[in-house]
Design a protein around this nucleic acid. Sequence first.
DNA 1: TCAATGCAAAGATACCGATTTTTTCATTTT
DNA 2: AAAATGAAAAAATCGGTATCTTTGCATTGA
Lengths: 352, 352
Amino acid sequence: MAKIRIKDIAEMAGVSVGTVDRVIHGRKNISKSALEKVQKVLDEINYVPNHYASALASNKTYHFAAIMPMHEVDSYWARVEKGIEEGLHRYSDFNIQYEIFRYDPFDSNSFVEQARLLLESKPFAVIIGPIFNFNIMKGLVTELEEMQVPYALIDSNWPEFKPVTFYGQDSLRSGEFAARIITMASAGAKKIALFKLMGEGRVASRQQLNREEGFRKYMKEHSPQTEIVDLILSVYDKEGMKHALKTFFTKNSDITCGLSFNSSINTIANFLKKEMPKHQHITLLGYDAIDANVTCVHDGSVDFLIAQHPQKQGLNCLRSMVNATVLHMKQKVEHYVAIELLTKENIDFYKD
Amino acid sequence: MAKIRIKDIAEMAGVSVGTVDRVIHGRKNISKSALEKVQKVLDEINYVPNHYASALASNKTYHFAAIMPMHEVDSYWARVEKGIEEGLHRYSDFNIQYEIFRYDPFDSNSFVEQARLLLESKPFAVIIGPIFNFNIMKGLVTELEEMQVPYALIDSNWPEFKPVTFYGQDSLRSGEFAARIITMASAGAKKIALFKLMGEGRVASRQQLNREEGFRKYMKEHSPQTEIVDLILSVYDKEGMKHALKTFFTKNSDITCGLSFNSSINTIANFLKKEMPKHQHITLLGYDAIDANVTCVHDGSVDFLIAQHPQKQGLNCLRSMVNATVLHMKQKVEHYVAIELLTKENIDFYKD
DNA sequence: TCAATGCAAAGATACCGATTTTTTCATTTT
DNA sequence: AAAATGAAAAAATCGGTATCTTTGCATTGA
């Protein structure tokens, strides 16, 4: 059974292809009789358009825009962006233009300002990164909905939003998972170190807070006797950090494991290798398969990483967007990203 | 900068579009001078064809074929096939026909016979599942290479083969990973039960053997004092199996953990729940996120599953094949599938 | 020597399946 | 009766592919 084309439908209904196109897309200037004739044929057959031919014929230029947190190289959001760019490259046959607006995730005004610029750029479709404040997010979403601009959400969604697609991660669950792995790995440990490395972002991201919440929840339920020892460090003050870590490990010489909810666990691992080589092995768990962390997993100084495929997320998000808006294909909306555990044994197979 | 079309190149080189097309595809009947003129332009610009327009214009029907092990519902290969079918659906805009040839994985003659039928069907491109015997596989591959038929490999590859794409898993590493997880989870256990459930396949698949090899290798290196207790069971003899398990757990009352290298760990979990409800918790690890296993992870009777995304593998393999042969896009050849650990905390995010 | 033939080279064009613009024709309206 | 309007057919187009046709040149035979 060969595929049915618009031309075939036109013949069956005894009208021209133009008329069929008008009916299919609900455009105006159709007589009731023509509409009925075409509709009858459409009801009988199962017409699936050739999406690629359709995109080719419409010969449009699409202006995509994204609004996303500012970032350093190789950070989470840098890699989401990289995935989006990979997707743009893959779909370069369609005429897609792309503009990105970056905001300071700790400054609502910055988001508002960038959102204004984004709207001024009259985008055809938008990808939105997370902002803590619901009302501010809501402001942008409402405007887009009014302008009938489709949007994709990465990382935060609310039931009242109607995105074309949503890619997110359940950071609470991810924290629980981290707790399970670390307790298992350090069987019977009485103390777990929780390293909080504060970098450029003066406060922890919502993701990090959720991970910690999930972690503490699991610990309370499954291992309430274990003591969680916090250590707050600033990456800016290298000497201060070194000193603080030395003091910490001397004071807590019975510590056998630790974790961090952002990508900076390699800092701890490298400190231990360099400054305290004779210290007993400390089981470390961290987040994100950035190069510095992967190196530490290979040499055994970090035991576990939890990865959430930011680049794949970016790529998939863009692909969903293209499929939905350029190719008019139906899409699944909610996509929860896998929480993956990486160790020396399987990390080589993790490709973002 | 708008995209450069064949028409633009023709104008620049002062020839017709037909000539440009001939040069690009290395067809015959081109004069040296025309070739030089076009080549000069091509060297200067970076021409990227519109792959979708190309596929549309060539208006071909593609006969894809696959040769794969016979299987029961929901088994590994059933899900690979499901992924392939999902891919076919996704690419239904291209005129792709599909035929599958299933062989008995324990009977080389069956493979040879199906391969013959496959070759007789004059396929445009082929997806090949694994067969233990290299020479038999080699026979098919050689014939395909002679006929210039592109092929994709799933699961087994050899350096001398030149597939369009390869999707595989490192089962040895996967076994090592299993060993690490189970030793960690059952800290200090002196015995580990290794359940070998033999089903329809009278012998274990190569994958299973490799997993076991990796497992034993890790145990020898990292925990040589741990005893590995094998228990061979046949799924056909339900009563016999029940009896054997009862005897086993009574005799080895100090066993606290066990694993299986195929998808049947749920059998053990369900036995323990039903027949020995008062027995202390036994940490179980198994393979493949089939429904029966996922249920056991949810209720806590199975602690870990190692998953390898068969459906995704099938889908990606088909996608690579379509991209390479129908759309003439460059593809990465080697794809090693991620080894993923599933627990109660993250299994809900695992979608094949 | 020159028309007839053959053949390679390259231009012109129809086509893929859709969209979009233009043209045609039948009704209304003024 | 001329102008305006609406519906639907016809045709051009998107970026390539493939076929058909024409062109130019070398070879052949009268």
